[in-house]
Design a protein around this nucleic acid. Structure first.
Lengths: 336, 336
DNA sequence: AATGCTGGGACCGGCGATCTA
DNA sequence: CTAGATCGCCGGTCCCAGCAT
């Protein structure tokens, strides 16, 4: 009646010792078929449930992974988390999920908590303003970790993400080569994050290669959300300056917001727009949104794989996995 | 060097017993200020980390909650998970997240795993085809649970969701009263889920009340995704029948897909559309999408609250929390 | 004698090195 | 050499006894 069924109960019921029951449980060691069967039977008749916490305590290993994310509800991170979850559970791990709302303080608290839970590793989308010392801490704590989708300047840490320089270049090159854009804007994204710097650098590279002045890039940082895109779009229009020929948005959501702003002012078809991440909704947008495909779900799966490899091989050198994105060309860029 | 710092190490360093150190840790019992300080100091100089697993083993209580979801990356569940995570972490709990892809088998596996982790409770979006016996099991296992956003027919279980009958009625009433729709379709959503039945019933109620034949409802079940909406929309158009005056979609994503289908055939403004859930992107859509607001994030927070209450008071009677949704009126329904 | 603090040691539920028949 | 048993251990928690005031 009272308390859970323990391995001792199973052993008693089967007339063997705890140790033997444990061997049966883990399908290891040498146990006769008869004994094995008796134990297995006892387990099911008693309704035994393995206590992973007790085992973890003894073996000093956990099968949980901390997943710390800045914006749990954003479409892109939704896809990335999906891939991460798949990769982890496929290997018998379980993610402990925490949202930081991009606040380094909450991030620190979260990591502390996860440490108390003795997670086997940490997949981290670092909040803007994360100090390099965090990585030093993680290393000092022997906490295996992988940064996902955002990295920290001049810090040597395992990383999985898209190659954002290429992403920016791809988008700009298409606008310039195919659509003869001569003035370009980059809209949205917090200025402090490296992926934004990389992308704008990629854009500038493309501009320079095609004889455009890179300093002419209209660089408008801001939130990464749809609301952010709307606001930035309103600003851009209200500035009174002529609209850039091509606008590259920091995310598809920003592009959606931008379109709302354009439409409010009857400018829905006045410029060419490219989004970023190619989330599921991009293809349904009107006009169907051309977007730099970073493949969130695959990215999440790769992050899981890298993290699990590092857990298996703790001494491994830090590896960087920057996938080359592709441009999903649709109509918002002006293509027919 | 070897192994983690334990409470014993802290006690030794501070010159007290483990028990005393433990009292300091938990800020309970009577410990002199001096002793407390010495212990606290020892903890920080040694870099002590609380081992929650060990504590959980002894106290037979966990502070993790299983969160089992059908579609981790869908915008609506993203918002709901966000609220859930907020509610849980605010109370010192941590969510163990598992995705089922709407597969009851994977769901069963997931719950088994979570049981082995001795989670304190379970927030479950039941996969379609979940048998009522699952709830019996949960009860027999003394596993506190709350169903989120989907419930199971004729099963008495704690539930947090929107009142879908009202939701359906709200949408249909608006189409009929304000826009004089006389033919209505309900698009998307798996036929087996109760929330869909509730919504279509609400729609039929509204039709009957306004002198329309409820059996004339064009009922088109299907996937809840944007791709699903696109496919169903294509079908609807290809059927050659005249387009219904008003189309209520099972989710905003379905509505997005439907619009793509309409636009492919140049019918983008030929009917009135209402979505469901009012996700963040609905307001940005062209035309801005009228949608039944179920408030995913608040729903998640309420689910967390109910679950935590049940954990605190295990004997409590099952409560049902059906929030009355509101209609977020924009332009897709034909409003100016 | 009562009160306030601290120490000893038995747990929780598995694991695994060592030992026995 | 094999099937199986013994028992201490992982790192906290908490009851109970002890000791100082």
């Amino acid at each position: 009646m009272a308390g859970p069924v323990t391995l001792q109960d199973v052993a008693d019921h089967a007339g063997v010792s705890r140790a033997t029951a444990s061997l049966v449980l883990r399908e290891t060691g040498r146990v006769s078929t008869q004994t094995r069967q008796r134990v297995t039977e006892a387990m099911s008749t008693l309704g035994y449930v393995y206590n992973r916490g007790a085992a973890s305590l003894r073996t000093q290993t956990a099968n949980t992974i901390g997943v710390v994310v800045t914006h749990i509800a954003s479409p892109f991170f939704g896809e990335a988390i999906h891939g991460l979850e798949t990769g982890l559970t496929d290997s018998g791990y379980l993610p402990l999920l925490v949202n930081t709302d991009d606040d380094p303080g909450r991030q620190q608290d979260a990591i502390q908590k996860l440490r108390e839970h003795q997670v086997a590793g940490l997949a981290l989308v670092p909040a803007t303003g994360t100090k390099p010392s965090l990585i030093d801490q993680l290393r000092a704590w022997n906490m295996e970790h992988v940064l996902v989708s955002r990295y920290i300047k001049d810090v040597d840490a395992p990383y999985v993400g898209a190659d954002d320089v290429v992403g920016g270049r791809l988008a700009a090159t298409h606008l310039i080569e195919t659509h003869e854009s001569s003035s370009i804007a980059y809209l949205g994204g917090l200025p402090a994050i490296m992926s934004r710097t990389d992308r704008t650098n990629g854009v500038k590279q493309a501009m320079a290669r095609h004889g455009l002045d890179p300093t002419s890039l209209v660089d408008v940082p801001g939130a990464v959300t749809g609301a952010g895109g709307l606001e930035l779009g309103q600003h851009l229009i209200a500035s009174g300056l002529p609209l850039p020929d091509g606008i590259i948005c920091h995310s598809d959501s920003v592009a959606f917001g931008l379109y709302r702003a354009l439409r409010i002012h009857g400018l829905g078809t006045e410029t060419r727009v490219i989004g970023y991440d190619n989330i599921g909704g991009a293809a349904l947008w009107e006009p169907p949104l051309t977007s730099v495909a970073t493949q969130g779900e695959a990215l999440g799966r790769r992050a899981a794989r890298m993290l699990l490899e590092r857990i298996k091989e703790p001494g491994a050198p830090t590896s960087i996995d920057k996938t080359i994105p592709e441009l999903a060309i649709r109509q918002s860029c002006g293509c027919p």
